[in-house]
Amino acid sequence: MAETLPVELLIPCDPQYLSVVRLVVAGIGGRAGLTIDDIDDLKVAVSEACTNTIDHAFADGEGAPQPATIMIRFAPRQGELRIEVEDVGQGFDPDRVPVRPDQPPSLEGGLGLYLIHQLTDSVEVQSAPGSGTKVIMTKRAAR
């Protein structure tokens, strides 16, 4: 598949739309040549990123846009799918996120980001206090 324009999905910041996001991951992942196992991994990773946004991005309610939304961008290429999950919420300092990809988190919390790291080939978190958050994940097809 030649590189094409990304597919954009804008959802309300509401957990009832998580299943919709997973359906789109499956559809576009198949077009990008990912295996069923790859797609299962990516469904968890993207869903976790959206859940983090729902839980934290607009947590204090201050300055939250009405309605609060999450933008998910899918950029499929042959054998690879890059997905961005972006919000315009309160953001955070990435240096203070207590998760390292090679280290299992405490079972009390922080599982979501750990799973994202474990289930994708690369993860980048762009955020700053007051500037929203963007999580960029890439999954390559298993060979």
Partner: peptide, 12 residues
């Protein structure tokens, strides 16, 4: 068919 960290947290 699907489980994520929220359900895991509840089980734990």
């Amino acid at each position: 068919e699907y489980i994520d960290s929220v359900a895991l947290g509840i089980l734990i």
